[in-house]
Design a protein around this nucleic acid. Structure first.
Length: 595
RNA sequence: GUACCCGUAGCUCAAUUGGAUAGAGUGUCUGGCUUCGGACCAGAAGGUUGCAGGUUCGAGUCCUGCCGGGUACACCA
């Protein structure tokens, strides 16, 4: 994590410290030389709290960075009133140390006062970002790949909101095309008027089963593919019977998918249905053709993308009908008409890297207003036990079944720990834990990585996992609940009337200060996660924080300490709990006070 | 064939966007509850960062060429 001179939004402590460091440097080397300097964190906190690498200065002064660091450490004179209390050169680095009690006061007080707004900033003030994510097909239930999309979409939305943006969460429903016709055809042949209700099957699974069935039928009789295409033609012509069936099966699929969304805790502000506009967009292309932005090749309209270093792309068939990209272009305009976003982010699998680049290039040619602010958040596939996951192969790796299976394991674990819990509470906790484990596991990876997922091996509840963080939170709450000093718990939030009374000099052990310093990084983590649209940055940070907390926990008693230390440490662990709760919330993970 | 992504400890992944001794989890081994929740903590072992060059004060990170894996390149959706 790097701080630059111009960096405006930090927490109060970091802001003061960085400002002071640059003030001190200014006196010694002059304003001119400050420009390119960066302050970073050292690899180990024993080395210092902030570091100035002196390589840039070496060029300016034509001296070795080691000499420069030594000179600076000699020449800089500290003020008594500041946050910085010590400077030490080490090789080409100049290390700054902060005052412990001042740091503790600034950091903990800010966390306490900002409550659940802690870490938020206003970078995105007055800016709207639309995030399109999930985009399911209506022929089958959501599978693991979808869950990666959903968790990413949700968390990125949350993180951007914390960075001050207004976020619109949109979902494109792919509700037409050959895939749904396949399910429909299989249902026509084998359905016998069965319904999800009559069969007691969740409605999207009901539809998905016929999609799988189609595959079986096709193996017996390859000709059936043609029948499906015929069905699609009838659908496009508006055949009433076909439309009725389509509506029925679609509503089953969609309501089932929405149920799953609710279960995994994601939602949307706006749904777009492909069937509403799959033929539109023609006019936009034709207008572009008239303006000579595109060319014609054997009657079809073609976009020349050479200057973008991309393969050319057809935009309309020679018979004048729309292609998939045509509706993509239309949808972009529609989004702008609906919300006028400043930025649009598509969360789509990496297999569409090329087509997304082409889409953005074409929109750029069309001078679409947001074209230059559109981005594709690309993520890799999830393989399950070696095989790429596809519902048509009948592998049961859909989200619903996976969660049900994992819940069983979590319930067993909870019962082991707490034998008196009633069934309902066991189930409630199991759900939160399992979702925490799955979300954290998926978000901890870099999005680009292909994930090899093995339900039994991959998901554990110990180590660097979601439940570990949830446990950390519950553990802290446990301590606070047993305390009697200055804290009250009400409605899952904490209130304290006398932070002012806390003696911050009591927090001077290394275990205390490590924890405090780590807490001070939180706002910068949120900023970074937002800039990169990358929840993994936050996930890694939370783990680091929890680990440092546990180290503290095992060597520093809270409740058994003398009154003043107890009070100070209670405030400290309360702050840790606040940050963990807030951080997990931005990852879409729930916390609970007992687990 | 062309483009993009990936290759780091036995396994799964990190690495402050070019910076200090490449770190975690897991697995293996050793320790730690009459003391705030053991879903925990402390420690040991484990590495030629796929290979070969190059760029510079400095490369896991950037450039070139190989090797291996994945994905995408329709007047499909």
């Amino acid at each position: 994590m790097q701080y630059k001179l111009n960096s405006k939004i930090e927490n109060k402590f970091t802001y003061l410290a960085i400002k002071e460091i640059f003030g001190l440097l200014n006196k010694v080397i002059g304003k001119k030389n400050l420009k390119e300097l960066e302050i970073i964190y050292p690899p180990e906190r024993e080395m210092g709290d902030f570091v100035l690498p002196c390589f840039v200065l070496a060029k300016n002064f034509k001296k070795s960075p080691i000499e420069i660091a030594a000179e600076l450490s000699k020449n800089i004179k500290l003020k008594n009133s500041g946050v910085i209390c010590k400077i030490k050169n080490q090789g080409p680095y100049l290390n700054f140390f902060v005052k412990n009690n001042r740091t503790a006061e600034l950091v903990l007080r800010e966390i306490f006062l900002k409550k659940d707004k802690i870490g938020e900033n206003k970078i995105g003030k007055d800016k709207k970002i639309m995030i399109e994510y999930l985009s399911p097909n209506t022929n089958k239930p959501l599978h693991l790949g979808h869950s990666r999309n959903a968790f990413l979409g949700w968390s990125v939305s949350k993180i951007l909101q914390a960075n001050g943006y207004k976020v619109i969460k949109a979902c494109l429903i792919n509700d037409r095309g050959i895939h749904i016709c396949k399910s429909m055809l299989a249902y026509q042949k084998m359905g016998n008027k069965k319904t999800p209700k009559s069969e007691k099957i969740k409605s999207d699974h009901f539809v998905g089963d016929y999609y799988v069935l189609f595959d079986k039928l096709q193996n017996e009789n390859p000709e059936i593919e043609k029948e499906a295409q015929e069905l699609l033609r009838k659908w496009e012509k508006g055949d009433k019977k076909v439309l009725t069936l389509w509506k029925k099966m679609n509503s089953w699929a969609i309501s089932g998918i929405k149920e799953t969304c609710k279960e995994i805790g994601v939602s949307f502000d706006k749904f777009y249905f492909e069937s509403d506009f799959y033929k539109k967009g023609k006019n936009i292309i034709l207008k572009g053709l008239k303006q000579k932005k595109f060319t014609k090749e054997e009657g079809a309209v073609l976009a020349d993308l050479k200057k973008y270093n991309l393969p050319n792309k057809f935009l309309l068939r020679s018979d004048g009908t729309a292609l998939y990209i045509t509706q993509d272009i239309y949808l972009s305009y529609l989004k702008y008409k609906d919300y006028e976003p400043n930025k649009i982010i598509h969360i789509i699998g990496s297999e569409q890297d090329l087509s997304q680049k082409q889409l953005f290039a074409i929109l750029d040619i069309l001078k679409f207003k947001v074209a230059k602010n559109m981005s594709h958040l690309s993520y890799g596939m999830i393989n399950v036990e070696g095989g790429k996951l596809k519902s048509r192969e009948g592998v049961k790796v859909d989200v619903d079944n996976l969660l049900a299976e994992l819940k069983g394991e979590a319930e067993a674990e909870i019962k082991k720990r707490n034998k008196k819990l009633n069934k309902k509470e066991v189930e409630r906790r199991a759900k939160i834990i399992v979702l925490g484990a799955l979300k954290y596991y998926i978000l901890l990876y870099g999005a680009k990585n292909t994930v090899n997922f093995n339900p039994k091996k991959s998901l554990s509840f110990t180590g660097n996992t979601g439940p570990y963080l949830q446990y950390t939170y519950a553990r802290i709450i446990g301590i606070i609940q047993k305390s009697d000093v200055g804290f009250q718990i009400s409605d899952f939030r904490f209130q304290i009337s006398d932070v002012v009374d806390v003696d911050f000099s009591k927090l001077s052990d290394v275990a205390d200060t490590n924890l405090i310093f780590e807490l001070s990084k939180f706002s910068n983590v949120i900023k970074q996660a937002g800039e990169n649209c990358d929840p993994s940055i936050l996930a890694k940070y939370l783990y680091e924080l929890a680990k440092i907390f546990h180290n503290f926990y095992h060597q520093s008693p809270v409740l058994q300490s003398d009154k003043e230390t107890k009070k100070a440490r209670l405030l400290l662990i309360f702050s840790v709990a606040q940050i963990i709760k807030k951080g997990l919330e931005l990852l879409g993970i729930e916390t609970m006070e007992e687990m």
